[in-house]
Design a protein around this nucleic acid. Structure first.
Lengths: 201, 201
DNA sequence: GGGTTTGTATAGCAGCGTTATGTCATCCTG
DNA sequence: CAGGATGACATAACGCTGCTATACAAACCC
């Protein structure tokens, strides 16, 4: 193999590690190296060890989440869009529960913290647009987005850890989103309808 | 040493394991056994292995949380009480962040699932009382409690994992609680005042 | 083209959770 | 009141883990 850092090896390691996490297989250094077609040293040259690899996998998880949320086209109803973002966020977590849990296991220690902001930005933007069209009162969009996120994260986390049943997501997700937005000034009935429309896609 | 199972050894193992978790020390089987004044086999006779020990420690965490929440005397303002429960819940988590994270690492696999319900019950009771005194509409107290819990858990979890700063708790905790209760039918201004009074103790 | 640098493969190390074995105090049985 | 049976505990060893020291080979630089 060549001397310059081979990005393909690095990508393969992240990819295989993520897939093993998703498949709930134990991700051991040797098993991972074998699957990625390299030796154990590859993990050390590229990531400095297993913890570095986990950080890269978490980063990849946030990157994919941000990409998914970014594809959602805004409509003329920002409150609906916020509901849709909540649904997409929950769907992403439910598709790969193990990866979602891993992401927040040490989300504060991401190689590039801006990546997590990338997933948060659509929420802030949605809250800002909702205020601009007069749906919300004089509130800070970042505050509204943070509360939407905290509520969604808590609910998703409880579902992903099997504390609450999967059905709790559709039962409480829209309600939690709407509660935050109503408290931020939106009309109760109109808000509930918009959010629900977003969750229903 | 006697032949019958020594409950003191069992308690010592749980106690030392919890304190090591709180102190962020690596809880290895050998280190734990040494501190508890026993041998490695003690963990296996009492818990069947490390995973059984962790389950017991998680259970102990929920037990203490439930005990703490149970000591809070209800006042004539149930909405204030719900705010106080939220503050106590958050304070408990912030005092032992590592233990809180451990609790929800596999909260669904508790030896005695009723213990977790013990921590949840005060919330349901508070919501029920709030409805009885006419503060809420025709809502299911369990639904309200679940949403309060999900929001609080998400916020606490983000703080405990250092994603959000500690100040986010006081900034968004009361607001999140109030949002859920307002959406459940309480008067916005009165609700915010009651919840804030609860958080302020 | 020779010297340097750097990524990869191999082998070995300390530490981990776990388990097999031995020992001793306690309890049930006759 | 002996004397197996029982079960908790100590000790030692096993397999596996992440990690590191060493050796080699390919690519760059001058």
């Amino acid at each position: 193999m060549p001397k310059p850092a081979d990005p393909a090896v690095r990508a393969a390691l992240i990819e295989h590690a993520a897939s093993m996490v998703v498949a709930r297989e134990p991700v051991t250094l040797r098993a991972l190296a074998t699957r990625a077609g390299t030796s154990t040293m590859g993990v050390y040259t590229h990531f400095g060890g297993m913890s570095g690899l986990w950080a890269a996998v978490r980063q990849e998880g946030f990157l994919r989440l941000a990409a998914r949320l970014a594809t959602m086209a805004p409509t003329d109803d920002p409150v609906r869009d916020l509901g849709a973002l909540g649904a997409a966020y929950a769907a992403n977590a439910l598709e790969h529960p193990a990866l979602y849990r891993l992401m927040f296991d040490a989300a504060a220690d991401l190689p590039d913290p801006d990546v997590a902001d990338g997933a948060f930005a659509p929420l802030v933007d949605g809250a800002r647009r909702a205020r601009e069209v007069g749906r919300l009162g004089d509130v800070d969009p970042v505050d509204v987005a943070t509360r939407l996120w905290a509520g969604g994260h808590g609910l998703v986390m409880l579902v992903v850890t099997d504390v609450l049943p999967r059905a709790a997501l559709t039962a409480h997700g829209p309600a939690l989103n709407a509660a935050v937005l109503i408290a931020a000034g939106d009309d109760p009935q109109r808000c509930a309808a918009s959010v629900q429309r977003g969750w229903d896609g």
